[in-house]
Design a protein around this nucleic acid. Sequence first.
DNA 1: TTCCAAGTTTAATTCAAGTGAAATCGGAGC
DNA 2: GCTCCGATTTCACTTGAATTAAACTTGGAA
Lengths: 226, 226
Amino acid sequence: MILSESIEDYLKAIYTLQEKESPVSTSALAARLQVAPASVTQMLKKLDLMKPHLVRYKKHHGVELTPHGEKIAVEVIRHHRLIELFLQQALGMSWDEVDREAERLEHVVSPHLADRMAHVLGNPQFDPHGDPIPQKDGSFPVSDLMCLLKLEAGQSGVVRRVRDADPELLRYVAGLGIVPGSQIHVVDKGPFDGPIHVRLHPANGQEQYALGQTVASQIFVELVAG
Amino acid sequence: MILSESIEDYLKAIYTLQEKESPVSTSALAARLQVAPASVTQMLKKLDLMKPHLVRYKKHHGVELTPHGEKIAVEVIRHHRLIELFLQQALGMSWDEVDREAERLEHVVSPHLADRMAHVLGNPQFDPHGDPIPQKDGSFPVSDLMCLLKLEAGQSGVVRRVRDADPELLRYVAGLGIVPGSQIHVVDKGPFDGPIHVRLHPANGQEQYALGQTVASQIFVELVAG
DNA sequence: TTCCAAGTTTAATTCAAGTGAAATCGGAGC
DNA sequence: GCTCCGATTTCACTTGAATTAAACTTGGAA
């Protein structure tokens, strides 16, 4: 069965939105995919009627993926993240440009090619942004990360994941030296959701940065003593 | 300017057919692209009217690519061949499966990614089938190959190129041990376009094969003494 | 019970590509 | 120059995917 790019994007969007609210509302999808709510309704009706049942859709009550739909969503995500990592590792592309490229490639890469990439990369568990790469059986590697926002003053962590919503933001934090693997120490936290003052470890010249909420919310760390 | 896959396929087809006859006829294109002649006429009119002038089309007199159209065709071909070689070299995919994969990837790979692949491969000149890979400036590496059909009995050559029109054929000749790099000796040639009897060198058990016209016409060699 | 934001329906539109059948062109041969 | 046939173009549609604006329901909070 061959699915259009658009359908794959809908399934992927439903999958990610499901983590926050399930079932997923029409308007949430419309906002995420940048289309009119009417377009979403049309597509959901279509998906619900497809030969292999991809979603469960009840009028006025949102959608959920069926196991089959979820399988496809996870496969697309797997392709996306493998491609990102591959472009970075094997082709030396930079951290912030791989997402755009992967967005187009994910829909045309065959499962076989994806497996070849995974093999060459040594069946990796995380992509360049630290996002978990689903395995071929659909399972996700587990990791116990904490959002930088949640750290208290005095705590330290190793950066494991930086969400890839905005390439600008990626370039900004990378410019500060914050990439997966770097160790961060929270020096201070402003009150009332104020900025978070962090220092990189090992400190290169005692540089200290004040990160806003938006930036800090995209960074996830593994806690370490220190 | 973003061109559809279909347009890129038309330009590529015109480019390759131009080597044989120029201007290229509507029916030749229709046959190559497996569409009705009427569809070709429609598309040619559209291409002739496009903002950047891609083709020169005169009713009832065929098409030719403009320099601009040729540039795009060559770029698509460059992508295709780089992808083929990359899939084989870097990902260990087999000789006969890379073409199908490249056919889809060629349209979504960015020029930058193509350059990265070329770099990693050491700016190669020929793809796995021996087809020349256009350089970034559009120039083709030159090589002085001879079609196996043209060899006389007693002559030898090193296989440099096997056209990739048909994966079945590729698998067949690869099964015989005929791949780029292998040395071939023409033992005998049947009269009246009969089969060509060849032996591989170094001969493994004196195996001798009779190749038909169709097969031999797809194989190109570099002459060697012997 | 009312009311309105969220969601759905309707009736289109747009765009890209393709088709069969009928009309037409142009060059080879008389 | 004329005729004719195959190649080509025109015409009028079809398909298919994706989208929309505007009018309409609906579910559930107050």
